Simulated assay, not measured.
Amino acid sequence: MTTFHEMLGTDDSMSATEVKKRYKSISTRVHPDKGGSDALMRIVTQSYNFVLKGDGNKEVFNSVTVEKGDVSKLQAKVRLLEKENRQLKEAYDRVQKENDKLKEELKDQVAEQFTQQRRHDRASHQTDDELKRLKRQIKDKEKEFAKLEAEYNSYREKREHAVAVEGEPQRRRGPKRASGLLVLLGIILVVAMLGSMPGVSEKIAALIAPKEAKEERAVTIVRPQKPVENDIIELEPLSETQPEVITLPTEFFDIHPINQAGMWGNFRYQESARPYIAVKSKKGSYVVRGCEGNFYFYLNSPNKPLRVSPNLSYRRQQENFHVYEIQYGNGSALDNWFDSNSLLINGESFANANFAQAINRHTQTCLATNR
């Protein structure tokens, strides 16, 4: 016979909430207003009550009293209801299996997509690292190229400046001078040996004696001295016997004020209009480089200090600045500025921002000025 569980399509593992859902689903179909009957409605209601009490395995017709109606008709409807419940349960099981299958497929797809995403992320990270490495190499090469270009331009600038002031520079004559002295010494020895022979000394004297006495004129190349207080190189007055002297022009020291500290900039001296680059420290001092290629330290102090760094050579006072040439050490060469972010000069820190761009523009401007 049919049990209450079979009547509702439930079992002992289902919760009260699930049993209630099954009861509502069946009662809507057997309700008198939906084409059912009072007897079926009572059977479904009593089945629901028995299942909630834990008596769902009891047989329906041994536990339910039918007050009215034909028992055979009622049994037929109950069998029909049981068939529908079985069909619904089979359909539910099929849907449940398909749902589980879809869940597994979706799980596999999600896992595959996650694996592919991880591979993509790993490849993307490797590509980003490679790009960063290449960018660093390019930046280092650009910095190295800028350094070499600045050194080459500085060499050209100094050479053209020297040619413009002194003419074509003389070549070194050290080895040739030494070899010339050796040849001269050999000639003297030969002449001495021949002079000891009778009658030969008179002939040698006749050969080497000059036919006419030529006026001798000494030629002296005067190098520029360190600037003195009045910016003029003092030379001895020329006499009739002294050679002509070319006085090299000294660089002007009148610079423009800079508002921002730590940033190299391109400027021109106020009087000479020659180009220079400069950077300012937080204490108001400057480092300046002109077309001649030397670096100068402008100490911002009303009084000349008693002690400064040993690599600083005093040049002059310009307004509230005491000007020193940086002869060696920190700040004296292009390499110092290219290879560091800041330099310490006489206890003051000078930042090195924008130096490569400033020195390149400065070198080009100096080359154009010297032409």
Rank of each mutant, 00 (worst) to 15 (best):
V323Q: 06
E319W: 04
R268C: 03
E229F: 01
G36E: 08
S285W: 07
A218E: 14
V78C: 00
V288I: 04
E166G: 12
K101D: 13
L344W: 02
M41P: 04
Y286D: 02
T247W: 11
L88R: 12
K34Q: 03
Y324M: 09
I26P: 02
G284N: 03
P175W: 11
K135W: 14
V30C: 01
L299F: 08
Y286T: 02
K73P: 05
Q270F: 05
Q113T: 13
G180Y: 13
Y324G: 04
L367M: 00
Y314I: 02
N341R: 03
R316Y: 07
Q116Y: 14
S154R: 00
H125G: 12
H125L: 14
D38K: 01
N294K: 08
F267D: 06
Y152R: 09
R274C: 02
H125E: 15
V60M: 09
G186V: 10
R136A: 15
R133S: 15
P305H: 07
Y155R: 10
K89I: 06
E149W: 00
Q116E: 15
R22F: 02
Y324P: 02
E202K: 03
V190T: 11
S27E: 00
A218R: 14
D254G: 02
S342G: 07
T247E: 14
T10A: 03
E319H: 11
Q327P: 08
Y92M: 12
N294P: 04
K101E: 14
A351G: 11
H362R: 03
F145V: 13
R223F: 13
P275K: 04
G290Y: 05
G35R: 08
N311R: 07
K77F: 03
S196N: 06
Q225V: 07
L88E: 12
E149T: 06
F50I: 00
E144M: 09
D339M: 02
N99I: 11
K214D: 11
V323L: 05
T45H: 03
A358F: 05
